[in-house]
């Protein structure tokens, strides 16, 4: 499984006093309110919670997509909250792999090119990136679909391409935001098994935000987000 993409050493995640809010016409909407989180290196954490509880915001902050209003987010000893510009882009490119609920694939590119794109951003040489994309797609069972565009793939297949892309630069942390939210039961099972195997085989730190109880049940730590804080599920 995913032999071609040996991850960097797994890293721990430490979050302290994380606060975040959104401005609304009715005033600030607090979604994270002094949240603390500890994920050991190589840990597997599932976060659940009601819609609008702030799960995706938490994951976005962990992934460097969004800057918190306050607090520290330490990933592998680096405070992500203090990164900006090229450093932040490098963090997104190399330290984390992000899997989106809506797959986040570029429709104009084939499955292989979508995976290669992540490598291209990391300036991996053309030959190596082609080989790596081929290996990753084979590892997620899509070796016959490399030339297909996302619109020619099923939801489950798209998500597997997205997972392959997330692993393209051998991240230390894999973040998955509702990875099975748009999938049928069979695809959900397959994606869940894939994420689990990645975590097991590559010892990367895995944080999954999900409503799906069966997916959450596979995690070693299950947390729920309530009133802006994490509690045991």
């Amino acid at each position: 499984m995913l032999e071609a993409s040996q991850p960097r050493e797994a890293v721990a995640i430490t979050v302290r006093a994380l606060r975040h809010h959104y401005r609304t016409p009715a005033g600030p909407l607090v979604v994270l309110d002094g949240l603390d989180l500890d994920v050991p290196a190589g840990g597997y954490v599932a976060v659940s919670g009601q819609s609008g509880a702030g799960k995706s915001t938490l994951l976005s902050i962990l992934g460097g997509l969004e800057r918190p209003k306050a607090g520290d987010v330490i990933v592998g000893g680096v405070n992500v909250a203090g990164l900006k510009g090229d450093e932040l882009a490098a963090y997104r490119r190399s330290t984390v792999g992000f899997v989106f609920q809506h797959f986040g694939l570029l429709d104009t590119l084939s499955a292989r090119e979508n995976v290669e794109l992540a490598c291209a951003l990391a300036r991996v040489p053309r030959q190596r990136r082609r080989a790596r994309a081929g290996d990753l797609l084979a590892a997620v069972g899509l070796q016959e679909r490399t030339a297909h565009r996302p619109t020619q793939l099923s939801g489950g297949e798209r998500q597997r391409v997205a997972i392959a892309r997330a692993m393209a630069n051998r991240p230390s942390v894999l973040l998955a935001d509702e990875p099975t939210g748009n999938l049928d039961e069979d695809s959900t099972e397959r994606v869940a098994a894939l994420l689990e195997s990645i975590h097991r085989d590559h010892a990367c730190t895995l944080v999954v935000v999900t409503h799906n109880r069966r997916l959450a049940a596979r995690a070693s730590v299950r947390l729920a987000l309530r009133d802006g804080k994490l509690v045991a599920a």
Partner: peptide
């Protein structure tokens, strides 16, 4: 917009 967001989310710099 989403495509650009995805590019940035997977590590594209502003100049990319």
């Amino acid at each position: 917009r989403r495509e650009i967001g995805v590019l940035k989310a997977i590590g594209a710099r502003d100049r990319d």
